[in-house]
């Protein structure tokens, strides 16, 4: 298990002061807390009992390098970078089984989305696994046309990730095309201008927030995080 995990090596700047976090980790933590604060019920992460119901309910936890329960444990231990460097948050297929069953009502799926956003913003990903590309391309396609387009999305993804896989998909593509289930060209919605205006406005919203220096909050690591 440990051998497959990424980022386990102790980081040099990590001082051996109990409870103290390296600067890079503080920044990640701030970013993540900011993202999760906006999720309704996002603060319930502090209620985690470490019971493991999430991991046991997850249909894909067997393929994760860090289980959902460990994600919360690592968050408490001040190891967000390790979470971001794992494949876990990108393997989640968003089926919400963990969220449904969590006895403490923790919004695990939504918190994983918050972690994905933190990863996208800070550029921390598992090595050689450009999984975030799918999300990035999806956003590009939607911003441009107002709708998603299956074929364009897959093309953009595979061309970057693994062009050979396209060959493998070709027979399926042809079969689907013959059945009339592939649209060849993306269609733009009429109100694309509205979407562009909203996008521009959202960029403007974010600018002042970046300049504002939010002080690092003590007491969000370890037992103090449990509240």
């Amino acid at each position: 298990m440990a051998s497959t995990r990424v980022g386990l090596e102790p980081r040099p700047e990590q001082a051996h002061i109990p409870g103290a976090l390296p600067v890079s980790e503080q920044a990640l933590r701030k970013k993540f807390l900011e993202e999760s604060r906006l999720v309704p019920g996002g603060d319930r992460i502090s209620r985690c009992l470490q019971c493991g119901t999430c991991t046991g309910s997850c249909p894909v936890s067997y393929a994760m390098d860090i289980s959902p329960r460990m994600v919360i444990a690592l968050f408490r231990a001040g190891q967000i970078e390790e979470i971001l460097r794992s494949r876990t948050i990108w393997i989640c297929a968003s089926c919400y089984m963990c969220t449904t069953r969590c006895p403490q009502g923790i919004k695990i799926t939504d918190l994983l989305y918050a972690l994905k956003r933190t990863a996208m913003d800070t550029g921390l990903y598992p090595d050689r696994l450009p999984i975030y590309l799918l999300s990035k391309n999806f956003v590009r396609v939607v911003n441009r046309y107002g709708r998603s387009h299956e074929m364009l999305l897959l093309l953009l993804y595979y061309l970057r990730r693994n062009p050979l896989a396209l060959l493998r998909l070709l027979p399926l593509g042809i079969a689907m095309w013959r059945k009339g289930r592939i649209s060849l060209f993306p269609a733009k919605i009429k109100g694309i201008q509205t979407i562009r205006q909203m996008l521009a406005a959202s960029k403007a919203l974010e600018l002042p927030r970046e300049k504002e220096e939010v002080p690092y909050v003590e007491g969000t690591v370890g037992y103090r995080a449990v509240g």
Partner: peptide, 14 residues
């Protein structure tokens, strides 16, 4: 327009 599916959410919430 597109609802954003599961993927837009991982880029920007608002």
């Amino acid at each position: 327009n597109c609802c954003g599916a599961t993927m837009y959410m991982s880029v920007d919430e608002a």
